[in-house]
């Protein structure tokens, strides 16, 4: 009789223990995946999709908590495992989409940086020909502006290096605009003096002030 009872109870006990075990390992693995997506930039580059992923994870966690609150015999983590599996299935897709958007932003930033470098180079070439005319103050200011633009190109590179592509692109565009304005200012000055080259300052005391 005892043996019959044991034979009847054993599968039941196994079933209860199997269904009653919370999927803590799978939960930890899923949470790590979502964190990886965040670190990959999903919250910045795919904010809405990342919010959905977080929503799915929260629902899975809530389901686990609900089951934990039940009496051991009545716990069933099947649905929680399904929800966690859904999150794990979506996470790599989100990471891939994030990488794609980040690559696009990086490409835009690089192109803007290249365009800015070209614009600064053209402006510098014109500044070298800037006439030292009556408006000496303007010439000195133009030289300062050219120096500042060159320094700002370094700031663009730093933003790209730190993967802040939004700032890099905005700064590069600003440098490009200013370089064009500077080039136009120098061209205007050159046109006034007929394109004459700047005369280097003489070394004698006569012209030193």
């Amino acid at each position: 009789m005892k043996q019959i009872m044991m034979l009847l109870l054993a599968p039941t006990l196994l079933l209860v223990v199997g269904c009653g075990k919370a999927p803590t390992d799978k939960l930890a693995e899923t949470e790590k995946g979502v964190l990886d997506a965040k670190l990959a930039g999903a919250s910045a580059y795919a904010a809405e999709d990342f919010a959905k992923l977080e929503g799915m994870l929260t629902n899975a966690q809530k389901e686990i908590d609900d089951q934990n609150a039940k009496f051991m015999l009545f716990r069933d983590y099947g649905k929680a495992e399904q929800l966690l599996a859904s999150v794990r299935a979506e996470t790599p897709k989100l990471i891939e989409e994030t990488a794609k958007k980040k690559a696009e932003a990086k490409d835009v930033a690089f192109k803007a940086h290249d365009a800015a470098k070209e614009a600064v180079k053209r402006a510098q070439a014109l500044v070298a020909k800037a006439p030292v005319g009556k408006d000496r103050a303007a010439v000195e200011a133009i030289k300062n502006d050219a120096k500042a633009l060159t320094a700002s190109l370094n700031d663009v590179q730093m933003a790209i290096d730190s993967e802040d592509y939004l700032t890099a692109q905005a700064k590069a565009k600003a440098v490009q605009d200013k370089s064009r304005a500077l080039a136009a200012e120098v061209k205007g000055a050159l046109a006034k003096v007929g394109g004459a080259k700047a005369t280097p300052a003489t070394t004698g005391t006569k012209n030193k002030k």
Partner: peptide, 13 residues
């Protein structure tokens, strides 16, 4: 000096 252009670039940004 160069501060003027730095400010102008920030405004453009």
């Amino acid at each position: 000096g160069e501060q003027r252009v730095e400010t102008e670039l920030l405004v453009k940004q």
